[in-house]
Design a protein around this nucleic acid. Structure first.
Lengths: 223, 223
DNA sequence: GAAGAATTTCAACGATCGTTGAATAGTAGT
DNA sequence: ACTACTATTCAACGATCGTTGAAATTCTTC
């Protein structure tokens, strides 16, 4: 029998620490099959390490998952907050345009995904997965991302001072859905468009998304 | 030991067929925990039926899942197609507005979800789940929904004759993400808005969504 | 009410699950 | 060489997994 019969691919042992190999392997597998769809044994086979090492480096399967989420979330919050502050400093006194604010919200993510695709692809797919799960999506997304989202909503409120709260929050909801489906990279768009648009072509969506969404915000908030 | 220790709720045996009770129980559980997160034993406990009956009425777990998808998809395709045809007949000769077309795409779903919430809630959550899954989302969504989507894209192409294909397909992609997150009813919007907007309030989103999305289509397709 | 088909019950299979404890190997400072 | 700590290996636990075959029951039709 094969020593590692579970994974198709394998995380190279090269320079990485065992802990990192486990995180990488688990991140990729969770992104593809979901939390319950992947076993510790599959993860450790892909990471080329013994099963019990998962429980040595992390306390449990659930803790391993949380650690995957935590590993990258601060980087994302940092670059997005800095992008927003840069936009605001560019317009001292008055509010930036809606499109500029949304661009600060989406551009850092899509750009990161474009430039370091292999590194971030699975993490974004995981977020997309969670964002659309009614159950444990709630707590996770709230804790990790809501503070930043509130910061952006304040900026948008200044740019759209006459906007009803309900209109604003629903607009953000639409934004959130569009953004997460985009970096889920499901390939459905490729199939549907017959090649006219590619899910993985972040460079081609990075400008389109804020343009599209800003128009929505502005029309919905128009008195 | 309890006879049915798995499910929290239970599908009443009343008037329904065993087959229907299994489908209902499985639909709800799959929507909450995902395909791999639910066992046949949990499903049959909730349906108050013996485990082996799942394999009598359906060949396998996978087949049960496919049957859940098939059970309601024709109804959805029917009402959406009829809504589009009604809009087109209202504008003989020339094309309907972008907002009217999008409304025909989204309104039937949101209205159905509003009026028969308990009946459709879990099915829509399941679709949201699948739409954001890179793996087996692809084939399923393509087979069941793409023909109708292509029909809508043709209508939109007529309403936006100067639109680049790439712009049109990306716009639809944003629409798809916004729509599926909306009927996922994750509750995240409620939490974020502090009550100003409610995920489950379909009546309040049914007009906002086409308005928001039509603005996006039009600005992105503007020459 | 007998015959035949459809449905339900019961018991079990091999495989895999998350998790653990104890033994072994590797590394650093003294 | 000895110690202390970290990292890894090996073997196993009880529970649950998807699935099945055969017997028992209920339903339908004459």
């Amino acid at each position: 029998m094969l020593k590692f019969k579970y994974g198709d691919g394998v995380i190279k042992k090269d320079k990485q620490t065992t802990r990192e190999r486990i995180l990488d392997a688990a991140e990729e597998l969770f992104a593809h099959k979901g939390y319950e769809g992947v076993s510790i044994r599959q993860i450790m086979a892909k990471a080329e390490a013994d099963v019990s090492l998962a429980y040595y480096h992390f306390k449990s399967k659930r803790d391993l998952f949380n650690e995957i989420m935590l590993r990258r979330v601060e980087i994302l919050n940092d670059i997005r907050l800095k992008a927003l502050e840069a936009v605001e400093e560019r317009h001292p006194g008055n509010a930036p345009s809606v499109e500029e604010i949304i661009d600060a919200f989406t551009h850092p993510l899509l750009d990161l995904l474009a430039r370091e695709h292999e590194e971030w692809k699975y993490y974004f797919q995981l977020i997309a997965h969670i964002n659309n799960s009614p159950d444990w999506g709630g707590e996770l997304m709230t804790r990790y991302f809501d503070p930043l989202v509130r910061r952006f909503l304040e900026a948008l409120k200044k740019a759209l001072p006459d906007c009803d709260d309900a209109d604003l929050y629903w607009s953000y909801h639409f934004l959130s859905g569009a953004l997460t489906l985009t970096f889920a990279e499901t390939g459905r768009l490729d199939n549907l468009s017959g090649g006219a648009a590619k899910s993985s072509d972040m460079a081609s969506v990075v400008d389109r998304m804020p343009k599209f969404l800003a128009a929505g915000f502005e029309r919905l908030c128009k008195k």
